[in-house]
């Protein structure tokens, strides 16, 4: 598509310049500094940079050999998949259902948003109480109905993945839900009208009209899911802290924070940040290659 309206390129500058100027000053300039930081020795955030690492790319070599980093990458890959399948999946189902629910739709729209407004820290504390080893809600419940006799350590090596992923997935379903609902509302009414004249009923319109037309919005969700999973931080940090159990639960976001603030290895943390960005771009491009966006 290249409409005649947009042949003259002069106004484009006015459209793009303000936003990109902001991004250059407040995002790209600092991030270039971050890239440079990943090559020099810095022990403590806010302290001056020291000598250049020997060799200058040593942080990146170490990253490849760091078992915790490899764990973080694996977990993040799992999280990306789970986010796409469940987070976006559940949100899509809920959005389609709410769209045809009619009565009460507004109520559901409002309450599905609740988990996102509560800060990750507060939710983390709540989930910690649910999964608490001694006297936690889940253990109490399972003991009362006789499913377990001893307390289960939900953060041990057998259970940690589910304990970490469930709250993360649950929290952000509402986010994708709101985006998808908006997408559904943007679909032009004539299309539905035409379809109903052709005799298409509820589920058929959903399958043949809503879903294909949601394609772009779903693609946006895909990109947001990938980038979101790579940098997710607060909820897993409050629940799993320093890679509980035994450095098994690291995610790229939590590992980066841990190295920068807790371990005071700022240059190493900067290198992780660079990897996060590179991975995000590469995976999004891959997604772009597989599911292209379409113009209408």
């Amino acid at each position: 598509m290249n409409s005649v309206i947009y042949k003259k390129k002069a106004p484009l500058l006015l459209f793009l310049l303000p936003a990109f100027a902001f991004m250059m000053v407040y995002l790209y300039y600092p991030f270039v500094r971050n890239i440079l930081n990943s090559f020099v020795e810095i022990s403590g955030l806010g302290t001056a940079a020291g000598a250049v690492n020997q060799p200058w790319y040593s942080n990146y070599v170490n990253l490849l050999q760091d078992p915790s980093m490899i764990t973080a990458l694996k977990n993040t890959a799992i999280l990306i998949l789970v986010t796409i399948v469940f987070q976006v999946g559940i949100a899509l189902v809920l959005a389609l259902l709410t769209d045809r629910a009619g009565k009460g739709a507004q109520f559901f729209r409002t309450v599905y948003f609740f988990p996102i407004v509560i800060s990750g820290t507060a939710l983390g504390l709540m989930f910690n109480l649910i999964f608490l080893y001694k006297g936690g809600m889940l253990n109490q419940l399972l003991q009362n109905i006789g499913l377990i006799s001893d307390n289960v350590d939900w953060k041990d090596e057998k259970h940690f993945l589910l304990t970490m992923l469930l709250p993360v997935i649950w929290q952000y379903v509402g986010f994708y839900f709101v985006i998808l609902i908006t997408g559904l509302n943007n679909i032009s009414a004539d299309i539905y009208e035409a379809a109903s004249l052709d005799g298409a009923d509820g589920w058929k319109t959903t399958w043949y009209i809503s879903l294909p037309l949601l394609r772009n919005v779903l693609f946006t969700c895909l990109i947001l899911a990938i980038t979101g999973a790579l940098k997710v931080f607060d909820l897993p940090w409050v629940m799993m802290g320093s890679g509980i159990p035994m450095d098994r639960s690291w995610l790229t976001g939590t590992y980066m924070y841990n190295q920068t603030f807790i371990r005071a290895d700022v240059d190493y943390g900067s290198a992780i940040a660079v990897i996060i960005v590179i991975l995000g771009v590469v995976i999004s491009q891959l997604a772009n290659f597989i599911f292209r966006e379409k113009d209408y």
Partner: peptide, 17 residues
């Protein structure tokens, strides 16, 4: 791509500059 990449810049690493 620039827009996409900047979405992932962790605030922890850009705050000091």
């Amino acid at each position: 791509l620039m827009i996409l990449a900047s979405m992932m810049f962790p605030v922890f690493s850009t705050i000091i500059p």
